[in-house]
Design a protein around this nucleic acid. Structure first.
Lengths: 339, 339
DNA sequence: CTGTTAGCGCGTTCAG
DNA sequence: CTGAACGCGCTAACAG
């Protein structure tokens, strides 16, 4: 029946020191299980601390240790089905390692990325993980060095050596094209997006170069759309796509593919009878879609976990090992033999 | 051409005080645009601060002001399509108000919710927003008072008066049942989930009571599933559902509905010809699904924004105004006349 | 094994 | 208008 009369803020080690008749620093040692402390007094102190409902102040501790055990995470959005899982992976790995996660969204806005970065600096986070969308401006962050390890998630320039995790999109896309080529397709299309310029051009390039390698004379119809949402981009891409005569199309991601398939079905275009459609990401719904989607599976949680692993390596050893993950082709019902 | 030789950590007001030949406290006043400061010296100091790349330490500031301008957010997952948008809304509103967001996932685990809450206490967040799944245990959090405002997102007991935002699920479900009843349906079903017991029973109760009001003698087949993922729950619910003879079914959420529709189509069951299906949430894909889903639209971003608004009210005035949002019925192609 | 002292970076008195 | 001194809560020296 503890009846503590707490006055102002939370209880501090000073409060419990007084209650135990010892010095605050003794309390600190007792609670941190440090060296050189009497087992008897320790237990007494620990008990008092518990009775008083003591919760150490992370900020006071940080001020002296200059470690916050907090990672800053910057991503375009949380509600993106791809990013959500990636960040879940980060949070999970962070939690396991005793780190907190300070989250901010960049909303595909390169300027905001910079603003956020300085805000995170003020918070003195121990490291920052960025999901890039505009590589160019992100590189600026590295140049104006933030004084904290920075880890990138997303494609990088070939010659850049920034800590981060990358997916082998080129390889994955090549497997897609091989698959489509094997099915007899000889006229292709790529439906991209404008607000994630780097990963978009990365996939587009990979697609085009794979086609020109496997089927040199095949045309590739390309559309880069900037409609409001990915779904709409897919929907609105249909007319021009049909006109192009393409029989197989790679979409930037699954959402674009869903939009495309939806409008195709409405227009009486059969999938995959008239048109083979491939996505990218492998969202949860992709396999349960009425036309199960052939797509490139990205190990989303693992991407986040690997990013956090690199952070920890960097923090503990100062060096790191790159994470190179594979995107695997998952063949389902949205691709088929050329008519 | 500033060539500052920074040694240890980030520059502090002390560094810039020395560089300006003034006292640290003067720097503090100058930078915080406080009263009583010479315009001349202020500008000089501001310039030096900028040149030195000064970033105020949020933790040092917090230590003295005992305000962190940080809200803790606890939710089951980030990757949930419903929660993602809610949290985006929180982050947006927080950012606008100059707050940071410290995020943790509870993974549908009531115990973790408690652990996280104490962790957030250590971080001295100014407030906590919780997306509840197990109301019972969340109430414990309030009893063991955290010393910070706590705002709830999700259904509450009728007699509880905890700050939070609630959706009028009862009303929304009633509109669903009315819609189905108008279509001629007289045999119903509800497919629920086991890991979000509170909102599940809330929806189930609402459904059953609405049915018994509108069509007193109609049977209601109920399944509460605990398969691995929501999609699977929908898929696996089909056999027993068909056996029950129900012609209209309310699913816990859209994902469950997608799973159900997918397996129904595969089994040759026509939607909505043989079976009318209703979801809950109105995800982005729901309207683009090949069988466009009739569902209850939840204003997801707004939910998050309102939660943050309550936080700010609580922090500034000590009181708050409840947020009561409506779930609106969106009729699409997955419901139709009873055969 | 424990108490003392100092200082992390900043805001806020209170004097000048 | 500005400088000096103190304290936020805690850890890390250094004594004892």
């Amino acid at each position: 029946m503890t009846m503590s009369l707490k006055e102002h803020g939370p209880v501090s080690i000073y409060d419990i020191a007084r209650a135990a008749g010892v010095n605050p620093s003794t309390v600190s040692r007792a609670l941190n299980n440090r060296d050189r402390i009497g087992t008897a007094t320790r237990e007494r102190i620990v008990k008092i601390a518990r009775d008083l409902g003591y919760q150490p102040s992370a900020i006071a501790r940080s001020l002296v240790t200059s470690r916050t055990f907090t990672v800053g995470v910057v991503a375009p959005f949380l509600s993106d089905p791809f990013l959500g899982k990636v960040i879940d992976g980060i949070e999970q790995a962070a939690d396991n390692a005793g780190y907190r996660v300070l989250f901010s969204t960049s909303r595909y806005d390169p300027e905001r990325e910079l603003v956020i970065a300085t805000s995170l600096q003020r918070s003195r986070v121990d490291a920052v993980i960025i999901v890039t969308t505009h590589l160019r401006s992100t590189y600026q962050l590295f140049e104006q060095n933030l004084n904290v390890p920075l880890v990138l998630i997303g494609q990088q320039d070939n010659d850049s050596s920034i800590p981060g995790v990358v997916i082998d999109e080129v390889g994955a896309i090549h497997r897609v094209v091989t698959h489509l080529h094997d099915l007899g397709h000889r006229s292709f299309a790529y439906i991209g997006v404008s607000d994630r310029p780097f990963s978009n051009s990365s996939r587009r390039e990979a697609f085009i170069s794979s086609v020109s390698r496997l089927a040199p004379d095949s045309p590739v119809h390309v559309q880069i759309r900037n409609d409001e949402k990915d779904l709409l981009r897919g929907r609105n891409a249909l007319p021009a796509l049909l006109e192009s005569g393409a029989t197989a199309v790679q979409c930037f991601n699954d959402m674009v593919a869903f939009g495309l398939i939806g409008s195709a079905l409405e227009a009486g275009v059969s999938i995959p009878g008239d048109l083979s459609v491939v996505g990218f990401d492998d969202l949860d719904i992709s396999e349960a879609f009425p036309v199960p989607l052939t797509t490139v599976h990205q190990p989303r949680e693992k991407i986040g976990q690997q990013a956090m692993r690199i952070v920890l390596e960097l923090l503990e050893t100062g060096t790191y090992h790159e994470a190179h993950l594979e995107g695997v082709l998952v063949v389902r019902g949205s691709t088929g033999l050329r008519k």
